[in-house]
Amino acid sequence: MSSIEQRPRRRAPWVFAALAALLAFLPLVAGPYPQTIARSVLTYMMLAISWDMLIRSGQLSFGIAGFFGLGGYAAAIGATYLGVPPVLTLVFAAVVVGVVALLIGAVVLRLRGMYFAIVTLALAEIFRIVMHNWSSLTGGPNGMLLPRSAFDGNSVATYLMMLVLAAVVIGVSEWFRHSRIHFALTAIRDNETVAASAGVNIYAYLLTAFAITSGIQGAVGASYAQLFGFVTPESSFNVNYTLIPLAMTLLGGMYGTWGPVVGAVLLGVVGEYLKLFIPYGHLLVYGVIIVLVILFMPRGIVGLVRGHLERSRRTTTASEKGGAA
């Protein structure tokens, strides 16, 4: 009896994985337009996951756009002045941004709560101002063109590049969730004093999480630069790269990999389709949807589904116990 009950639970991850794989590969046969939309969804999805990975420690960062833009510039500078091949600029940018985050994090991770959040917001602005004013290296306010974009802009190849990058980011996030880091970050979020007294090296764990998540944001920024072949201070450090991933995570659900994934897919696809039906005014409807969902589903969609499944499981168990009695 018990083996029959457990079978659907074992099957569920495989069904979910098969569905995810189908969704991931669907744009490949659907044509260039769905591939472009899917690339955009994957971009925001990776930023949302990386933001969530840090918030699992309780540290709220508003610096996504800063590290994203810095990654874009690292890719452009690496390709232009150092001859780094297009795809390798993603790794190059991840390392550069990760190291920058490590150095900055060594100082700013002494801060907590709103102090840390405001510092990360300021960091994003500082990065933008540096790129804006270092004209001899970055092209100044006009920005710079990349010598050539990844796969010469081939939409199938660039989509696959983004898919592989997204798979890596999801893999890192899941590794976070199933490693000691997860327990350490959760303990820090729940009660830092208790975590410290239990022997958790808070500073080291936060620094590791900050460097890795910033490195991811840098790699995503580099991929964006490679997709479109340019960087400018205004577009690369656009505040949307901070706000949209936050909205996606809140919609999908925080403190896990799949909340940001679901939020990114839903908001990305809904946003695109809304504008086809309401060309003048779709952003208003989009905003209202986000507000309503966050108001009425504070745990996000994944949290809501999980809660529903847990409730139905408890009801089933209770009725079985009642029947047995």
Binding site: G31, S40, T43, H282
Partner: peptide, 22 residues
């Protein structure tokens, strides 16, 4: 056929793709 670029490079690029292929 009009599509909103939303002042965003990726949305603007997606609009071109849609107009060309769909």
């Amino acid at each position: 056929v009009v599509i909103d670029s939303e002042f965003s490079p990726d949305k603007g690029a997606a609009a071109i793709e849609r107009l060309a292929t769909i």
